[in-house]
């Protein structure tokens, strides 16, 4: 089944902290050349991580639901820098 997560995220409310993403890939080369599984590209419930044709992993954290999955599953390389967004920024759950 081809599910578009963007359509789900579209329902959510965010205050994006432009230019200050709270999640970052530490070393993109590790994702591209060393990580065989790239499980973040599958497990992130907001689909923030995508694998490009070249094998590069691209992170766009605007739709982040702030769950922490990507940080915890990156057990082999600990290649994800994960902080909470600045106060008041990020996902703003309407119902939660």
């Amino acid at each position: 089944m081809n599910v578009k997560v963007e359509e789900k995220l579209f329902q959510n409310r965010y205050r994006v902290d432009t230019d200050h993403p709270h999640v970052n890939i530490r070393n993109p080369d590790v994702c591209e050349y060393e990580c065989k599984t790239q499980q973040c590209t599958v497990c992130c419930p907001a689909g923030c991580y995508t694998r490009e044709g070249s094998g590069k992993v691209v992170l766009i954290a605007d739709g982040c639901l702030e769950c922490g999955t990507c940080r915890i599953i990156c057990t082999d390389y600990r290649n994800v820098d994960w902080e909470y967004p600045r106060g008041g920024y990020g996902i703003l759950f309407k119902f939660g």
Binding site: K8, L9, Q11, N12, P45, G68, F93, G96
Partner: peptide
């Protein structure tokens, strides 16, 4: 009508 999608650990 779906109005919110959330994730949580």
């Amino acid at each position: 009508e779906m109005k919110e999608y959330t994730a949580h650990l």
